[in-house]
């Protein structure tokens, strides 16, 4: 019901408003969608096995290898296609977890207030005070390499963003008369939180979600780049970028440029989508 009301509100708004951001949203959505499709169909569309030698090392882009081969003779295109899976899985895992943890805690903290709120806020703010990447590095070192531990460290990085957002919104929504009215008819705290306050916050969450996803793609790539991410030979953009990077000085640009471009595109896709959603879902920001 909630979901459908969000969708319908998006559709309703789209009918009336066609600014630049309207197109941004679609471009962003299209980019993200194509990456998702790429990940789902990776085994069917990738021309070679991403972890096996397919040709000579460092072959330049050609008809046979559209993006060339890397230092071990593996097809870069295939590695990029398969790398999409990893990056999307990590993003999905960390976004789901941080959403599921950050949102309820924020709701509880904002609604109940008092000492509990002060303690949780202090903790979350101190997490938030770290630059995301530094915190992610510290956590990734503790947890060791691997997809799950990367997801976990990113989860911790993004929990405070949901927390702050939801707490702030809960603080403002709970001042509404309808919350008082709900209490006046004897609604339980749980009911007030989940049926009266949360639904009024949900519309502002997709924005945070997509902007965080954009950020998570970058951070995940950065973790892999410095060797705290996925173990070789699994295809991963950040790791491949790192492996191709030394060749740049010898004018062999393709092993690092293509993974880098992919990171840029996916980040761009999430950001555009998020920015566009902000415009669509938040009527207060609309300028005429």
């Amino acid at each position: 019901m909630l979901f459908s009301s969000i969708i319908s509100s998006i559709l309703r708004r789209l009918k009336f408003r066609r600014g630049v951001k309207y197109y941004f949203t679609f471009i962003g959505f299209a980019i993200v969608l194509s990456f998702v499709l790429m990940a789902l169909l990776a085994s069917f569309i990738s021309p070679y096995n991403p972890v096996k030698r397919a040709g000579a090392p460092l072959e330049s882009p050609s008809f046979k290898f559209p993006m060339g081969t890397d230092g071990l003779g593996r097809d870069i295109l295939s590695r990029i296609i398969h790398g999409t899976r990893i990056v999307l899985r990590i993003t999905l895992l960390s976004m789901t977890l941080s959403f599921l943890i950050g949102v309820p805690i924020g709701l509880l903290s904002g609604y109940l207030g008092g000492k509990l709120d002060s303690v949780i806020s202090l903790f979350m703010d101190s997490l938030y005070a770290f630059p995301g990447l530094v915190l992610a590095i510290a956590l990734a070192v503790m947890l060791g390499p691997g997809e799950i531990s990367m997801g976990m460290s990113l989860t911790v990085v993004y929990i405070p963003t949901y927390f702050r957002m939801v707490r702030g919104e809960a603080l403002s929504v709970k001042e509404n008369l309808f919350v008082e009215a709900a209490k006046a008819i004897g609604a339980k705290d749980r009911t007030v939180m989940f049926k009266y306050i949360l639904p009024n916050i949900i519309p502002s969450l997709p924005i945070i979600l997509s902007l965080n996803a954009a950020d998570a793609v970058l951070t995940a790539a950065a973790l892999s780049f410095i060797g705290l991410g996925i173990t070789a030979p699994t295809p991963d953009w950040g790791f491949d970028l790192r492996m191709g990077y030394p060749y740049l000085t010898s004018k062999i640009w393709w092993p690092s440029t293509f993974p880098g471009l992919m990171i840029v595109f996916l980040t761009l896709g999430f950001s555009l989508f998020g920015e566009g959603l902000t415009e669509i879902l938040n009527p207060r920001l609309v300028r005429r």
Binding site: L2, S5, N176, L177, F178, E180, A181, A182, K183, A184, I185, G186, A187, K188, K195, Y196, P199, N200
Partner: peptide, 24 residues
């Protein structure tokens, strides 16, 4: 007290525009 509210004593507020949950 929560069981008294609504069940034994009802309340009507001043501003009907904001006293209902807009998403319910």
């Amino acid at each position: 007290m929560r069981k008294v509210r609504g069940k034994r004593i009802g309340m009507v507020f001043q501003d009907p525009m904001t006293s209902l949950n807009p998403l319910m």
